[in-house]
Amino acid sequence: MAHMFKGTRIFRNREEAGAWLAERLVQLAPERPVVLALPRGGVPVAAPIARALDAPLALLLVRKLGAPVNPELAIGAVVDGTPPQTVLNRDIIAALRVDEETIERERQRQLAEIERRRAALLGAAPGAVPPPLAGRVAIVVDDGVATGATAAAALAGLRRAGVARAVLAVPVIAADAAARFRAEGTELVALSEPQALGAVGAYYRDFHQLDDAEVVALLKEASAARRG
């Protein structure tokens, strides 16, 4: 059971948050959905959603572009694809005076990490390769959204892929990011929208760092359940 703290849900773990989200998403009755998890933290949230919707669970490889002075602060994000899709947070870039060379260096570094994750995760769990998305309903899942740069990049990539409908589903999202997504026409399903988000991990009792082996195990379990 999720607990409330000053009007905000505190989840036991990512799986519980996913189960709560699944209840909301089932009511939307999406047709032929594909659940796309942002690794690593989005995978255990997405797994119960995929089960509830009887949908394939696939990975969407996206990496945040970290600021030079604070790698946790997103100056943008890049999403896997041909070509890769980059979304930049120009307000933060201007405020920090980050030059184009620094942005490109960080972009290349994160593209290399996407390649590593593709080999480690999709190589070990080939069933998690996204199916053709044109005309499908895509549900993008993460364990939380602060600035929204990573999710924005993911959604931009999906629009390029020709999805019929894209839904962003997250347990917790900063209120200003939620307002921005809705203003842009994004369909958002969120359980908590705090005004001052702070750290996403503060909304979970268990927010341990997942390793590749845990992610692969969840993906294989989801694939086996659908085959069964």
Score class of each variant (00 low, 15 high):
Val170Met: 04
Ala199Tyr: 15
Ala154Trp: 00
Leu73Gln: 13
Asp54Leu: 10
Arg180Gly: 07
Lys220Leu: 13
Leu168Arg: 00
Val170Leu: 06
Leu155His: 00
Leu88Lys: 05
Ala94Ser: 14
Arg159Ile: 02
Ala225Ile: 00
Asp206Leu: 09
Ala17Phe: 04
Glu214Trp: 03
Glu113Cys: 05
Ala156Pro: 06
Ala67Gln: 08
Ala196His: 13
Ala175Gly: 09
Ala134Arg: 15
Thr86Phe: 03
Leu57Pro: 12
Gly123Leu: 09
Ala124Ser: 09
Gly162His: 02
Ala174Tyr: 03
Pro132Phe: 03
His208Glu: 07
Thr86Lys: 14
Ala169Glu: 05
Leu60Gly: 12
Ala58Leu: 05
Arg109Ser: 07
Pro68Val: 00
Arg117Gln: 14
Val140Tyr: 06
Ala199Phe: 11
Ala199Trp: 14
Phe207Val: 07
Met4Thr: 10
Arg90Pro: 07
Ser192Tyr: 05
Gly123Tyr: 11
Gly127Arg: 04
Arg205Trp: 02
Arg51Asp: 15
Arg226Glu: 06
Ala196Val: 13
Ala119Asp: 10
Ala152Tyr: 01
Gly198Val: 04
Pro83Tyr: 08
Ala112Ser: 05
Val216Arg: 10
Ala74Thr: 00
Asn13Ser: 06
Arg159Thr: 07
Gly162Gln: 07
Pro84Phe: 06
Ala178Thr: 04
Lys220Cys: 08
Ala175His: 10
Thr186His: 07
Ala52Arg: 14
Ala77His: 06
Ala151Met: 13
Gly198Asp: 08
Leu28Asn: 02
Arg205Glu: 15
Ile75Asp: 01
Leu59Val: 10
Val45Cys: 08
Asp91Asn: 12
Gln110Glu: 09
Gly135Tyr: 00
Gly81Arg: 12
Glu31Ser: 08
Thr82Gln: 11
Ala164Val: 03
Val87Ser: 05
Lys220Gln: 15
Ile75Tyr: 03
Pro84Gly: 07
Ala128Pro: 13
Ala55Ser: 13
Val189Glu: 10
Gly42Asp: 03
Gly76Trp: 02
Lys220Ser: 12
Ala225Met: 11
Leu28Ala: 09
Ala154Ser: 10
Leu61Cys: 04
Gly228Ile: 01
Asp142His: 11
Glu23His: 09
Asp80Asn: 11
Glu72His: 03
Pro39Ala: 02
Ala202Gly: 13
Ile49Gln: 04
Ala124Thr: 11
Arg159Asn: 10
Glu193Cys: 11
